[in-house]
Design a protein around this nucleic acid. Structure first.
Lengths: 237, 237
DNA sequence: TGAGTTAAGGTCATGGTGACCATAAGAAGG
DNA sequence: CCTTCTTATGGTCACCATGACCTTAACTCA
């Protein structure tokens, strides 16, 4: 391909990768998928899953492919959006590597099987990672930080919270998503009012689900709206 | 460098560039800086300024450098933020080129002198470009679209509108920024109330400026706040 | 039957917002 | 000097979204 890039010289070329911050919620905790690196550099350290982008695929396609290869989960069920590009020289000791970070949100996923690249893939609580800095390879701690802030912000302005939920869910489960991501509790009554009156956020299925204790909860599915207007701001921290 | 990327093969490498969507406001119109391409592909067509990222510089540094080379404007006076990565195969007929798009906002800048790469650099009204699709090279029309939407959205949640203003400015000038970017008029009285009561958005200088007609306007400078809470939503379109 | 638990709905005071009106302070002209 | 025009600045009021809090509904279990 190099000869098609007329005028370019080798020193100007970079390796382009995608890295994925895949979030889900397990037991009311926000979790991120990590892999234990099986090769240098950072051998044995934890990192976000990712890999090289192929020249014949879109960045989005590359993200979807890596997602599938590392987690055996089809991207169709996930919310996937680009987070940004990270290209500081020195972020990879092997040389110039520019990575396009992606944010993926999904419902409680099965524990990932070892993919092609990743010997060990596992879910780690995000809260714990923030308390132990320096545990991630490359600049993945910063990417994780940005991914978390993007997620918290997205819940304010968009309807992506439903991406964390299964096909049908209760409003309490949806509230649990907000509480796990924002890290504080919400008033159940006010939350309900806000969600219901936001056109297209959720649609009632008409069904109910008995609870282990207490009154049965109505079931909902994802609505067609993408954005929240007015937004649902996290006022109190 | 290639030999330092152990295991990589040439076909996996990409050319990485930065492209800049530089916005300013002239005569109440939102303008974007374009360059007329002096080389193939898209010879003679208009494009966003940009160029290759060097291997020893940050993506942000590359953006600042290209900004300087193309416009002779120091980035310190501008608001510069990363917009995202664009890497569809085929976006550049020469081969795989991944570009990191940046959004730059600045006050009414002097007409740029021809830089090193750009023979002709000029300000074009954004509104006109949206009405004539297909006029920009590469996928720059899409980047411009995204940059515009990001800008409109940023004015809702952040204080970046002051980046369009000179050192000191009146509230009417600041309102003109919002009106130019959002494309509709705002109530002067309500706008004033909103800005003033948002702590740290603007600081009064104590000075006044006589107007060509009408009562003199108080002068303000940029405050220290970065984010608007509550946001300033563009409800009516 | 009563206690416990969760879902769901209602009340009320507060604060932000849009629509609108009123006043202030300058320039220009009769 | 006074009127008129223009823009800046300030105020009023109704409405809506929100947070805090209370009440009722519906189910399980002892």
């Amino acid at each position: 391909m190099g000869d098609r890039l007329k005028g370019s010289v080798g020193v100007e070329l970079s390796l382009v990768t995608v890295d994925l911050a895949i979030f889900t919620i397990r037991n009311d905790n926000l979790m991120v998928l990590l892999v234990e690196r099986g090769a240098e550099p950072f051998l044995g350290r934890s990192a976000l899953p990712g890999g090289r982008v192929r020249t014949n695929e879109t960045l989005d396609e590359g993200a979807h492919r890596e997602l599938w290869e590392e987690t055996s989960i089809e991207g169709a069920r996930l919310h996937l959006e680009q987070l940004g590009a990270y290209g500081d020289p020195g972020r990879d000791p092997r040389g110039r590597v520019v990575t396009i970070a992606y944010l993926a949100l999904g419902p409680d996923l099965p524990t990932p099987v070892g993919g092609t690249d990743a010997a060990h893939a596992y879910w780690a609580p995000v809260a714990g990672l923030l308390r132990t800095p320096g545990s991630l390879a490359f600049d993945h701690a910063r990417i994780l930080d940005d991914a978390l802030e993007r997620t918290r912000s997205s819940l304010e302005y968009a309807t992506v919270a439903t991406a964390f939920c299964p096909e049908v869910f209760t409003l309490s489960e949806l509230r649990g998503v907000y509480e796990a991501v924002w890290g504080h509790e919400l008033d159940p009554s006010n939350f309900r009012r806000k969600i219901i009156k936001t056109e297209g956020f959720v649609e009632p299925t008409g069904e109910q689900r008995p609870q282990p204790t207490g009154r049965p909860a109505a079931l909902y599915r994802k609505g067609s709206a993408q954005r929240l207007s007015p937004p649902f701001l996290r006022s109190a921290f």
